[in-house]
Design a protein around this nucleic acid. Structure first.
Lengths: 144, 144
DNA sequence: CGCATATGAGACCGAATCGGTCCTGTATAG
DNA sequence: CTATACAGGACCGATTCGGTCTCATATGCG
């Protein structure tokens, strides 16, 4: 149930950008800073831009820029842009594709679990990820 | 970030068994009832037994039996048995394997998110999955 | 005793997905 | 008009995943 590496990288890149939301970043610059292969970073930036999380500026001195404030972009947004809709189970995303749908009586309750996990990812912003542990206090109550 | 199909199947099988925890089930019988290929079910049962979630009885009239009560087996247990340790990110499971570990400042906070998701899966038992929506009330507060 | 049943362990394979690269086109700054 | 930088998409190798099969072992029953 792990995140894909690409989605993981994307969160790292987005958080770096969120630390200085007013700057524009080129893909190659970010790749150098983060220690990731430039072509891979370029691909990710395109995905993030197409999803509306980044604004792209073409031409010389162009680059990427956060489309919204770091407090208004969630982990769920980033994951969805790279990996598609987040979710633990198939049938909550592509209904009708599961051959068991008739018999299994747990689909509805899986949906509840699924929604809870997604909501947790939606509740964490890039700003919080860049902050200290205190910034994550809201999530801690999930562990009580 | 989806669960593997095998892990998904395993939850279905385990919940079927949890509905009648006193019975023993053979792999082929369960496969027939659930509409899954017998060899695949057999493989899953072995994994679940090795993880200590099922007790196996060999020989004629043998089969599998829940090792504990349905209220004492969680989704996290089942997932771990099939897919290995649950977790969204690599570096919280295999520290030292991520090349970015030096620079990325979000590892600690990812750990918090990760722990929250795992805890959510640990908090749901097979018994709850078999119950009505009311049985999941504990999880709903994650969405508030 | 001996056979049928059922699990234990693990090798094995095809297919799909994933991580990563490259090429061509387009827009903008200087 | 040239260098820079994004847009789109094709492409490929490697890994993982879903699924099957074989052989060994243990038990119940006739």
């Amino acid at each position: 149930m792990r995140l894909s590496k690409l989605a993981d990288y994307a969160t790292v890149l987005m958080c770096r950008m969120a630390a200085r939301p007013e700057l524009t970043y080129s893909a190659s610059q970010l790749a150098g800073e983060a220690g990731l292969p430039p072509p891979t970073v370029a691909k990710l930036m395109k995905l993030l831009a197409r999803a509306g999380l980044l604004t792209s500026l073409r031409g010389g001195r162009g680059g990427y820029l956060l489309a919204r404030g770091p407090e208004a972009i969630s982990l769920a947004d980033v994951i969805r842009a790279v990996d598609g809709p987040p979710g633990l189970i198939e049938c909550s995303i592509h209904p009708g594709r599961c051959s068991l749908e008739g018999g299994c009586g747990i689909r509805a309750n899986w949906g509840v679990v699924n929604a809870a996990v997604i909501q947790a990812l939606r509740d964490v912003s890039l700003e919080q990820m860049n902050g200290g542990p205190a910034a994550m206090a809201g999530l801690r109550r999930l562990r009580d």
